[in-house]
Design a binder for these strands. Structure first.
Length: 329
DNA sequence: GTGACAATAT
DNA sequence: CATATTGTCA
């Protein structure tokens, strides 16, 4: 009890950084397949990756961890709410201004080489700095343990990539076999809990139900089940950690992903496709294959609600929720 | 005040 | 495991 009252998030008003309004309806925003088709282009060809022997997840070096934790500020909104706010609202201004500004083109961040050497001058960068500092303030506590396990983990944000992964897995399992536990395992995304999946699955099912109920324009009309996951082209593939090379640590390849995919994308896709912002975390930039979500930290996004349908640009700063790359499974 | 998400409880 | 409820944010 004490002061769980949020200090002044409302009065700040800066919270509206990017999510102006959520349009909802996943289908919305998904143009016709025709529209998206031409846009097709893989960020990095799997073969190319293989050719270069790019490893998805070689190993977690101390450096990585360190870096990750550094960038992994995350506003742990579950536990400590009070302290964080004060300094946060400071850079909030930037966020607000930026997001409101329609011509925010400079947001185009290149993930190519940004180890933070000396190319920081963007406002965004500044924001990051602020966040960083902020997190530092909170994080400098005695517990040096990078894992921060027992702490409540931040709210999971289902990024398009993550969702895509989810859908794929469900598709492969078949709706009938798609149960939280299995899905979670197949997704093989560390940090993802069964609860997370269950919750999302619930929503997903609702979505499916809604779809077939209404309209009937479903893929197969009476046949329930869902879309073959058209999977948006841009983020398509690549997200999969296992490019075939070196099996993952344990468990090994989760999903073979046999499925057709681009060959016959049907219809009724998911919403999360078009929007290409992503200010993904860091941590694996060196790997060279940073494309989609990291199989290690599903939480790499900004704060909480999604703007998937909204403006895609806005790279956003939001807060970074993140939960270190650790999990207590 | 409403809607939506994710988390949590049943 | 599925569903219902709650909490939080925009």
């Amino acid at each position: 009890m004490g002061e769980e009252v949020k200090m002044s998030e409302v009065e700040i008003g800066g919270e509206d950084n990017a999510d102006e309004e959520r349009v909802m309806e996943w289908e919305v925003g998904l143009p016709s397949v025709d529209d998206v088709t031409p846009l097709f282009q893989a960020l990095i060809s799997p073969e190319l990756a293989s050719a270069f022997s790019i490893s998805p997840e070689p190993y977690k070096t101390l450096l990585d961890v360190n870096r990750a934790s550094q960038n992994t500020m995350s506003t742990i909104r579950g536990s400590g709410e009070s302290h964080a706010m004060s300094s946060k609202n400071n850079f909030k201004s930037f966020a607000e201004e930026r997001s409101r500004d329609p011509m925010v083109v400079e947001a185009d961040d290149e993930i190519t080489d940004r180890d933070g050497s000396g190319s920081d001058s963007r406002k965004l960068r500044k924001v990051e700095c602020a966040e960083e500092a902020d997190s530092a303030l909170r994080t400098e506590n005695p517990m040096d343990d990078p894992a921060a396990r027992t702490l409540k983990r931040p709210r999971l944000v289902w990024t398009p990539q993550l969702h895509k992964r989810f859908v794929e897995v469900v598709a492969h399992l078949g709706i009938q076999n798609a149960v939280p536990k299995t899905i979670m395992q197949l997704m093989n995304v560390e940090g993802l809990t069964r609860e997370n999946v269950a919750s999302h699955l619930q929503k997903y099912r609702l979505y499916l139900k809604r779809m077939q109920g209404i309209s009937g324009d479903g893929p197969s009309s009476s046949d329930q089940l869902f879309p073959s996951t058209p999977v948006p082209q841009n983020l398509q593939e690549g997200g999969n950690a296992g490019s075939g090379v070196h099996g993952n640590e344990h468990v090994g390849m989760p999903i073979p992903m046999p499925y057709p995919a681009q060959g016959g994308m049907i219809s009724m896709p998911m919403p999360m496709a078009v929007y290409g912002h992503m200010g993904m975390q860091v941590g694996n930039q060196g790997d060279g294959y940073s494309n989609g979500f990291d199989r290690n930290n599903p939480y790499s996004m900004m704060h909480q609600q999604r703007d998937w349908s909204s403006k895609n640009f806005t790279n956003s700063n939001h807060h970074n929720h993140v939960a270190s790359n650790d999990n207590n499974r």
